[in-house]
Amino acid sequence: MDHNKTHITEYKVLAKILLLLIFCTFLTISITSFNLAAFTVTIALLIAGVKGFLVLSYFMHLKYESLLLRILVGSIFLLFIIIVLITFIDYSFR
């Protein structure tokens, strides 16, 4: 059992990630204040995706977890995206 070998994330790294996350937040706000039509929501979601990725990999230590777990987390998001897309096959052609 390897509970003594877990990776310890340094305080400094965590603080840097927080700064990045806050930066992304303000970036979203400034970008969505322009009206770029359909692109705004795409960009907002992309930035949210980046933020989510940061939280998952550093705060939730996913970067240092097993490959299996990383694949699983990835497939959950993929499954959700596929379900949304399939639902839109109905709605966008009605």
């Binding site: 096959i89 109905d90 966008s92």
Partner: peptide, 21 residues
């Protein structure tokens, strides 16, 4: 099995494309 749910809804008024899909 996760992706086939719509076959319960052919007569509910789904779009044509969703049905064949």
């Amino acid at each position: 099995g996760f992706l086939v749910w719509g076959h319960h809804m052919y007569t509910s008024g789904m779009s044509e494309n969703a049905r064949w899909f």
